[in-house]
Write a protein that binds this DNA or RNA. Structure first.
Length: 154
DNA sequence: GCCAACGTTGGC
DNA sequence: GCCAACGTTGGC
């Protein structure tokens, strides 16, 4: 099993959307960065993904979801009405990928970025580097475990 | 709202 | 291939 962290703006999409539909797989779409897209494509069934809330009141890790369907062409890239529409993408050579994920757990409290920065296990993680804009980040099991342990201590 | 850091675009 | 200009991200 692999571990990941994926950023989202909770005003748009959040761990609570998953928690409200705990048995339903939801599509993680709208990724429009090549490196993040490549990581999305690397996700395997049942991989664990930490959901990170950015650009909001409570910035940090909010919960866990799991991959239920591996990468497939992100339909929003073909939809002119979507904010994620990409006119340069074609059905034969789609640029962008989506994966489906399902709820696993919501933390009692969001584990704040400030706390993440204190975890020595995350020293080399782009998440805590200023200016990092990578929205899908691979985590080692050590990083993942450190975050879970820190969240459960709160 | 500000602004630094970053990724992408496009002219050359 | 270079790099300036631009638009976006994201913490504060």
């Amino acid at each position: 099993m692999n571990y990941w962290l994926a950023k989202t703006e909770p005003d748009e999409f959040s761990i609570y959307d998953f928690a409200n539909l705990p048995t339903t797989a939801l599509r993680w779409d709208g990724v429009r960065n090549y490196q993040a897209r490549n990581y999305l494509a690397d996700m395997q069934l049942a991989d664990r993904v930490l959901v990170y809330h950015s650009s909001c009141k409570q910035i940090g890790v909010a919960g866990i979801v799991e991959v239920t369907k591996t990468a497939y062409p992100d339909p929003t890239q073909f939809d002119p009405a979507s904010v994620y529409y990409d006119p340069k993408s074609t059905k034969t050579t789609p640029r962008w990928q989506a994966v489906d994920m399902r709820f696993v757990e919501v933390f009692n409290e969001v584990l704040p970025l400030k706390s993440l920065k204190t975890l020595p296990e995350l020293n080399d993680c782009p998440l805590v580097k200023p200016g990092s804009r990578l929205s899908v980040i691979p985590l080692s099991s050590r990083m993942f475990d450190a975050i879970i342990a820190s969240a459960s201590r709160r």
